[in-house]
């Protein structure tokens, strides 16, 4: 929170334009965990659900950011995500994440070859519209944000052969997040308009459904200390492809703010059936640094 050297080149000119006068700059200002952690798609949120919170430790007086790496070790597959986000004035978030989905031994069974991997780049932007999830404790109104995630996969020919319409696509979402401080709860509900199969790793659209459909993702957690949030998440998925069923996903997570600048999230995740291989469950581990 106190180190802003990483973006110093960007900060100095912008802070002079900001309401805070240059020279009065000092980093930080969000409470622990009030920045959320990072989803597998690179946005501030839980692990599966994107929240309305803006990434980074800065308030309306500054620009902060975060970087993350996440590993999901499933029974037959592995998903690795890394990326970074910038949060400006507690209003706008831009993010980038790269996902790599490793089919490991199952790749041979599926006829792709052992260790065959699908990758995609995810470019995200989020705008906080109204509300303050943490401070507006006398209002029912949650913090509400809209966002977009443009995803570009690397296996165009293959995902088309599997029935997808495209290897790239764009999700749009509306997220509402609220900290119910008098009950030590954090809740989020997000609606996502998407065509993505397995978040886009298996392309967009399919032979069963081609167009945009609304999907739900949400989190509910309890703050057990100012450093530790325990909770659960749920995410529905479109199930567009005829060749392989896609299930809803859920997880049970623990997000721990080790310091102001480091958070570790561990989860048990159940992603259901992936590419005809059913019952994909496993350990989710994410490391985030924020400033």
């Amino acid at each position: 929170m106190w180190s802003h050297r990483l973006v110093a080149g960007l900060l100095i000119p912008l802070s002079m334009a900001a309401p805070a006068r240059a020279g009065e700059w000092r980093g930080g200002g969000k409470l622990l965990l009030a920045t959320g952690v990072t989803t597998i798609e690179g946005a501030a949120g839980g692990g599966l659900a994107t929240w309305a919170l803006i990434a980074g430790n800065e308030t309306r007086n500054g620009i902060g950011g975060s970087a993350h790496v996440t590993q999901v070790q499933l029974d037959d597959f592995g998903l690795t995500t890394f990326g970074a986000a910038i949060g400006a004035f507690d209003r706008i978030e831009v993010s980038y994440a790269r996902q790599r989905f490793d089919t490991r031994a199952a790749g041979a069974t599926l006829g792709l070859g052992r260790g065959f991997a699908f990758s995609q780049d995810i470019y995200g932007a989020k705008l906080r519209l109204v509300g303050d999830a943490v401070y507006d404790q006398d209002r029912i109104l949650p913090q509400i944000a809209v966002g977009v995630q443009h995803k570009r996969g690397n296996r165009d020919g293959l995902v088309r052969a599997l029935g997808a319409k495209s290897a790239s696509g764009t999700d749009f979402y509306l997220a509402a997040t609220k900290v119910l401080l008098d009950r030590s709860l954090v809740v989020d509900a997000t609606v996502r308009m998407t065509k993505a199969n397995q978040t886009g790793l298996l392309g967009f659209g399919g032979d069963r459904h081609g167009g945009y459909r609304a999907q739900f993702e949400g989190s509910a957690g309890m703050l057990v200390s100012r450093r530790l949030l325990l909770g659960a998440e749920y995410r529905t998925r479109p199930d567009n492809l005829g060749f392989a069923k896609e299930d809803d996903a859920f997880d049970l997570f623990a997000a721990w703010a080790v310091t102001r600048n480091v958070a570790v999230t561990a989860a048990y995740a159940d992603l259901g059936s992936i590419a005809t291989v059913s019952g994909q469950r496993g350990l989710y581990l994410s490391l985030q640094t924020s400033f």
Binding site: N61, D132, Q137, D138, L181, D182, R183, S184, S225, R226
Partner: peptide, 22 residues
């Protein structure tokens, strides 16, 4: 207790709107 702490903070948090000027 942490839960009791948060109940006071929930009462204080909205005062941000009156206390913060910039």
């Amino acid at each position: 207790p942490f839960g009791a702490q948060n109940r006071l903070l929930a009462k204080l948090a909205p005062m941000k709107r009156d206390a913060i000027e910039r």
